[in-house]
Amino acid sequence: MLTKRIIPCLDIKDGRTVKGVNFVELRDAGDPVALAKLYSEQGADELVFLDITATVDKRKTLVDLVTQVAKEVRIPFTVGGGIGSIEDVYALLAAGADKISINSAAVARPELVDALAREFGSQCIVVAIDSRQMDGVDWVHTHGGRKATTLQTKAWAKELADRGAGEILLTSMDHDGTKAGFALELTAAISGGLPIPVIASGGAGSMLHFKEVFTSGKADAALAASIFHFKEIGIPELKSYLEKEGVVVRK
């Protein structure tokens, strides 16, 4: 049976992991390749690298990093952050990334999604949506959730699927960082109504939260960062727990 996926997310700045990592096993916790390998050995199903480097001239660092990860990591990985053109995507895929993720660029130029899907195939195009609720309505935000748009989350997700996105990475900005659980209603509404997989993100704080997002949240995959980085939850124990709770996972 197809399994539900657990995806650790690594924030990258200037080629290094940031946002705090707490692994005694790692000689250098800032080395994304070492961390990626460790997660892979622990049973992570995929990895996401989110580049938060602000400047364009540092992009080369990202391509070098992708090459290193592709050489050493034996599970699929997605690279996102600041991608805005066919050339950007070509460079990352050629370096060995399995998928790329775009966000603000898709909002600014929706036709970019069509172009990327045509050029590289839907299977490697992930579109990230940052969603925030205002007066009971879910709105798409950009720039790390700071900037509101006039797009409603559910309609935007549908449009992205129609334009050829292969997967949606849905982050609830209201839940992100709270450790109070994923946005179950929103995730279920998006995932249940789409023909493509949805990766839920934002709010993971306990193993129960993962079970909830896979069952009532109808998510195909769940992404988290700090709870893995700070070892609040280990991937092996999370998978054992999910299996015991009847969620199909890879072991």
Binding site: M1, L2, T3, R5, D45, S122, Q123, G166, E167, L194, P195, I196, P197, K218, D220, A221, R250
Partner: peptide
């Protein structure tokens, strides 16, 4: 082809046995 009323999505993406 997803089964009628089924939850399956296409493409088949992820780990399967």
């Amino acid at each position: 082809i997803p089964s009628a009323g089924g939850q399956e999505k296409v493409p088949h993406v992820g780990w399967n046995s």
